[in-house]
Amino acid sequence: MKLSILVNEGPYQHQAADTAIQFTKAAVARGHEIFRVFFYHDGVNNGTRFAVPPQDDRNITAQWTALAEEHNLDLVLCIAAAQRRGILDENEAKRQGKDGNNIAPGFRISGLGQLIEAGIQSDRLVIFGD
């Protein structure tokens, strides 16, 4: 089945972020195709490489990056949600006149149209959040 994933909550704050990556791993392991993972609301905070969780805790962002590299996943942060919350890639940092960027490897920033396209193209859009 062709799946897309929507992550609506931030890491560590909310179980949804963990469940989303665990579900995605399980879906890939079962042979499902992941069309896209889209991060919205505080979910965009899953995509900052500047988060430093304690060493004895899981690193959710690093898990996404590794999963994306291994399975060529398309991890997309909503641009409007990301701008509000200070998540920038190199282009956005330049465009907004900011002195650095913090997007993690394997993620990209794009528009909400990518979420709608995921809804159109996928057999199921699976949503993680309240």
């Binding site: 919205y40 609301h41 409007a80 528009g111 909400l112 149209g113 709608i116 396209e117 159109i120």
Partner: peptide, 19 residues
């Protein structure tokens, strides 16, 4: 919470897709 506002933003963008 920001959910209502960001939901409205999705609806407005989605409208362009003529679904």
């Amino acid at each position: 919470t920001i959910y209502a506002l960001e939901s409205l933003e999705v609806v407005l963008i989605a409208a362009a897709f003529e679904q």
